[in-house]
């Protein structure tokens, strides 16, 4: 085998591993939300691929030492995607998968919205939209003061981007030249009351972030290779924070959830539907 062939083989293996992890995260999401029969499934499924790339490859973390100093951190600013984060954490071994089925049950460690004091591996409490990105900016400033070389990742919702605080955070991140801050927008074009375009359009999103001083990428949010390559490029960027716009489909991977359109923000899931959903996810060929 030539060097090039070796490299190609390695990269194919990485792709397969990341796709497999994304698949596992989606199955976990179904188990997690299915256990209580209702939840924010749409916006969880739309970020499964980026979570697979972050937890599967890029984040400097150690599941057996979740509070590791100088670790990379992820703030899920769209806090209602908690079940997606839990699904990734369980896949990485932060806690037992059986725990996923305690979602939203009284006394659970897995509440609908992310809570750093309840869930091992969750880096910030979120749920009141707009605040998480500011928290991530605070962490990125903290990392710069400590000079520990860590990266702070944040995922914001497209609907969440209607919050003024997102743009306050953006302005400060660029002003402070936080090139250790990598932000993703889950651009699935849907919010509770309708499409983003119907309710309060955020377009042109790339130009907005660019004008706010970010280096902007816009990619297919379900293409693990594209996400992987873009994060790698982002890490080489200096003096500017990064915005990676993930063009996504709300409910991605389960056809009846995708088909529910704006209705999939939070929707009921019966036991039969869960079985169907998992079959569909697992039927996706990994190539």
């Amino acid at each position: 085998m030539t060097m090039n062939e070796k490299k190609k083989n390695e990269s194919t293996r990485t792709t397969q591993q990341l796709k497999k992890l994304a698949q596992e995260i989606r199955v976990n999401i179904v188990d997690c939300i299915g256990s209580i029969g209702v939840g924010h499934i749409g916006g969880c499924l739309s970020i499964a691929d980026v979570l697979a790339v972050l937890y599967g490859k890029h984040m400097r973390i150690n599941p057996s030492d979740p509070q590791l100093d100088g670790r990379d951190r992820l703030v899920c600013s769209k806090g209602h995607a908690g079940p997606a984060i839990y699904s990734a954490l369980a896949a990485k071994g932060y806690f037992d998968k059986a725990e996923l089925k305690t979602l939203n049950k009284g006394g659970t460690k897995l509440p609908s919205h992310c809570d750093m004091n309840k869930t091992i591996g969750v880096d910030m409490t979120t749920g009141s939209l707009g605040q998480g990105l500011s928290c991530a900016v605070g962490m990125a400033i903290g990392s710069k003061i400590r000079n520990d070389g860590s990266y702070i990742y944040a995922i914001v919702g497209d609907g969440e981007s209607q919050e003024g605080q997102i743009w306050e955070a953006a302005m400060l991140a660029a002003h402070k030249k936080l090139d250790n801050l990598i932000v993703f927008t889950d651009y699935n074009h849907m919010q509770i009351d309708g499409t983003i375009e119907e309710i309060n359009d955020i377009a042109p999103l790339d130009k907005k972030w660019s004008a706010f001083g970010f280096r902007v990428f816009s990619i297919d949010g379900h293409d693990v290779d594209a996400i992987d390559a873009t994060i790698s490029r982002a890490k080489k960027s200096t003096a500017k924070p990064i915005m990676i716009i993930l063009n996504t489909i709300k409910g991605k991977g389960i056809s009846f959830v995708e088909g529910a359109k704006v209705g999939c923000h939070s929707m009921p899931l019966s036991a039969e539907q869960c079985e169907l959903a998992k079959k569909e996810i697992l039927a996706q060929a990994i190539i």
């Binding site: 903290g142 003061i145 306050e168 400060l172």
Partner: peptide
């Protein structure tokens, strides 16, 4: 300049940025 951070006129951001710094081990 590293330890005194001026967020400009954005108090909401200041509060949450402080929370992020606290989560990072600082006392803001």
């Amino acid at each position: 300049p590293d330890r005194v951070i001026n967020t400009g006129i954005a108090e909401q951001n200041m509060a949450s940025v402080a929370a992020g710094l606290a989560a990072y081990g600082f006392i803001p």
